[in-house]
Nucleic acid binder design. Sequence first.
DNA 1: CTGAAAGCGCTTACAG
DNA 2: CTGAAAGCGCTTACAG
Lengths: 343, 343
Amino acid sequence: MITLKEIAEKCSVSITTVSNILNGKSNVSEETKARVLQVIKETGYRPNYMARGLRASKTNSVGLIIDDLMEFSSPGIIDGIMSYFDEHHYKAILENLRFYSKWGTKWYHNKGYEKAVQQAIEEFVSIKVDGIIYVAGHARCISCIPNNLNIPLVISYAFAEQPGISSVEFDDMKAACDMTKNLIKNGHKKIAVIAGTKTNIHTQRRLEGYMKAIKESNLEDCGHLKYANWDRESGYEAAKELLADSECTAVFCFNDLMAAGVYDYLYEKKLIPGKDISVAGYDNRTMSQYLKPTLTTVEIPLFDIGRKSAEVILQQINKPEDFEAQQYFVQCGIIERESVGKN
Amino acid sequence: MITLKEIAEKCSVSITTVSNILNGKSNVSEETKARVLQVIKETGYRPNYMARGLRASKTNSVGLIIDDLMEFSSPGIIDGIMSYFDEHHYKAILENLRFYSKWGTKWYHNKGYEKAVQQAIEEFVSIKVDGIIYVAGHARCISCIPNNLNIPLVISYAFAEQPGISSVEFDDMKAACDMTKNLIKNGHKKIAVIAGTKTNIHTQRRLEGYMKAIKESNLEDCGHLKYANWDRESGYEAAKELLADSECTAVFCFNDLMAAGVYDYLYEKKLIPGKDISVAGYDNRTMSQYLKPTLTTVEIPLFDIGRKSAEVILQQINKPEDFEAQQYFVQCGIIERESVGKN
DNA sequence: CTGAAAGCGCTTACAG
DNA sequence: CTGAAAGCGCTTACAG
């Protein structure tokens, strides 16, 4: 591997000069600059990242802490982050905590997870990343970020308990409100809800959005609400209890998986989604367009959440003087497909 | 950040001694060792990664080059890699090439992609990773790895043209053979095939496996074969042409997406998969269990491919003397669901 | 505009 | 068993 020193020798200048050129300092004559740049190009010289990092304590890398890479939201967010990093020449170092794989769907009830996050942060501090993005597996208030952290950190897909830490989420409440209004616009007045787990923040925000839409449309909440636990089976069970003999003409499921469970129930009853009863989902998972009929759902802007997170962390790294912690919200879209019909 | 030097001062020993203890050298008395370890623990000292890397030119990190993180196979493979790295205290640095996003589904016909891969390799060499894993987006013979590469590299999900580079893939041929035999075991003698694109290696290997099963079962190839391009629409079109008035009782689709297209066609014709005609898929994508009836398919062991790739690269890094390039094949499983019935 | 020198925090022969 | 010293490849005041 060719070094700065060798470049300097080849050009008969000092290593200081070469370093200055590499770092875009203006105090070098055009003539030497051109000559040195030429040699650098010819030799294919690339600066030693470690040496630069050690000396300047700036590594152009940020650590990504991922609750679980296999969670449906993770790859999209990371993709967004990396597309931004690529453009700005930053590298991402991955720490995949694998919480779902290790501890099942209820991992966040296991307080051990907080220690794992803290260890990951420590690890990244030790390897001297310039900043950290914590990509959460689901929305929640995160309280395990050390208070004395002296390195930029932003939370993606969740938010921090303490002030001073930026986060970027999607506008859950607004999207639920929009979807409910979409249902109402289609003539539905009694809309059942299959929510997620009761204490979950997604559930709370979506419920709030639903209520807002009902209220703003001068309707009354029909009270047909069931809490379920986000999976297909629980959606099926909830549908069974909720739709058996209600007068609801539509069901709003707080995720696509539970909507699939509703489909299972309707299928059994020989009822057709979008015709006999309208069904709306949330998440726009890939499977939602393979359901028959296709599922009307809320699209979560994962890529944009990632991009924004990357933008925010690089701003905090490179312009710390302008930094001010904020909670950012990215807007969702409504994907209209076949499962919602006119009433 | 506390340094080695400070630890040494606190313990009144030399930094050499502390370094030796940290690196598990045996030439230190138990007494000093215990004392120093105690202080290290108390202070929460963590070695500076950059300094260690610079001096020892060993970073305990490997670069992951990903064709496209959004490809369905990528997260599972990466998850497997990282689970192994976690156990062995290695870090992964991600380079997401985003080929599908940038250049569409035909990116590998665009020779520019090879340059991007080479740049990514160069970049990783420059930042001094200990090794590189190239996670391909689909199986193929990769010919753009520099010959004079003096850093371990293994290919995951594809293989290298030149000798000397290990790869780990899944046993595509065997799985296709197994699935075909599964169909035959269910009494099907005329099995149509909806293959992928003609020159694709997955297509070739799966076709080979299909033929092998036909031959070993003393059946004759019914000749009902259509090449399609892996997506749902092409599966639909192929089904239309292939199943219109053939005597085939089963269709083997070379991926789940095309199988979904077959479902679309059958749905139109009011035919039921698994009853009127059997359908088999390949990939075990999430959506395959949301199709109705659920799809019988081949499960690709993504996690295991990742684990194995990680194992192979660490072996090559840490025991270069034992290294011998090999092409590894991980076995797939058959997921039997509802879309294949008795004939 | 240019360069000599110190130093980032470690590891590694080497001497004792 | 212990430590002084060189050096990994850079950046950064500082002097000229």
